[in-house]
């Protein structure tokens, strides 16, 4: 039988992986439809956490209401982000400029610029230190489960993530919205010729991805009790790593990679000091890029 310590680490890793997966889905969705990386995704996560924090501090509603408000804020943030940082660079919709590298890099840098503005504004308003969270909202009540101690946060994260994944799969497979998202990510110009409103589809993708990102933010904030303006950076990179490992366009691939990442990271802390745990993700990224440039689960691509 496994040592209970490792089971413990495994549960921690699983909930960490779930969080990364929630973020990685947003990344993957947006990459799928626009073929650009949204560097401001980490800031959506932070904004979600701060929205939840403000909600708790001012009204103190039940947890479910907080989550719903956070989702609404995330949707709004995603909408705003798309309008500000992505829309202006889709002025030209012909095939050449859609595939042009310069356009893609301009979009990438504009999302980077937006993320700086968002993070620094939060820092200006709230200060860069940890915010105090109402203790009764923290989701770290311990539950004994045989030899393993889990906290109720693990269960909540697991439940929320599961609902989101299943909902998303349903949405993508069986709804008109999902169909149009899949169409646009397959071939934006073709989708437009078929009468799909690509602009609306892109906005919807941003909204869905950002809702998940914001939800991940508040859940982590309440799980660790740590909410601060630059909290989105590291998970953002981890989610990105998961996306690249998963092969950029595959959502199940991204979810599985995020799980692998979360578990290895929490296992790594039992071997090396926790400050080096972040190294694992970066090492994974480099190894994936160098040895599996197609990603672990992705389809073949022309060039990497």
């Amino acid at each position: 039988m496994l040592d209970p310590y490792y089971l413990q680490q495994l549960t921690i890793g699983l909930s960490l992986g779930m969080i990364y997966a929630l973020m990685a889905i947003g990344f993957t969705l947006i990459f799928g439809v626009l073929n650009v990386v949204n560097f401001a995704h980490g800031e959506i996560y932070t904004i979600g956490a701060f929205a939840g924090l403000l909600m708790i501090a001012t009204f103190g509603p039940p947890l479910l209401a907080v989550l719903l408000v956070v989702m609404a804020v995330g949707a709004l943030a995603g909408f705003g982000l798309e309008r500000l940082a992505f829309k202006p660079f889709r002025r030209f919709s012909d095939e050449a400029s859609m595939k042009s590298r310069a356009m893609r890099e301009a979009t990438l840098m504009s999302s980077l610029a937006m993320s700086i503005v968002a993070r620094e504004s939060l820092e200006l308003i709230f200060g860069s230190q940890f915010q105090s969270v109402d203790l009764s909202y923290l989701i770290n009540k311990q539950i004994q489960l045989g030899p393993v101690t889990i906290v109720n946060g693990d269960l909540i994260i697991f439940a929320v993530a599961l609902v989101m994944f299943l909902g998303l799969q349903w949405l993508l497979k069986y709804s008109t919205i999902g169909l149009s998202i899949r169409a646009v990510s397959n071939n934006p110009l073709g989708a437009r010729y078929c009468g799909i409103n690509t602009d609306r589809t892109i906005i919807l993708t941003f909204v869905i991805g950002s809702v998940m990102g914001a939800l991940a933010g508040i859940l982590v904030g309440l799980y660790y009790g740590a909410i601060y303006p630059s909290m989105g950076f590291t998970p953002g990179i981890k989610a990105f790593v998961a996306m690249v490992m998963g092969g950029l366009s595959s959502i199940p691939g991204a979810v599985i990679s995020a799980m692998i990442l979360g578990i290895t990271e929490s296992m790594a802390t039992s071997v090396v000091s926790s400050v080096w745990a972040d190294m694992v993700a970066y090492a994974f990224l480099l190894i994936t890029l160098v040895f599996f440039p197609q990603g672990l689960f992705g389809a073949r691509r022309e060039r990497v």
């Binding site: 990386v37 890099e105 090492a283 890029l289 990497v304």
Partner: peptide, 16 residues
């Protein structure tokens, strides 16, 4: 690596 993949690799190296 090309384009975005290279950017991500340099990001990872910078962070490491």
């Amino acid at each position: 690596l090309i384009s975005i993949y290279f950017a991500v690799a340099t990001l990872a190296i910078g962070q490491m």
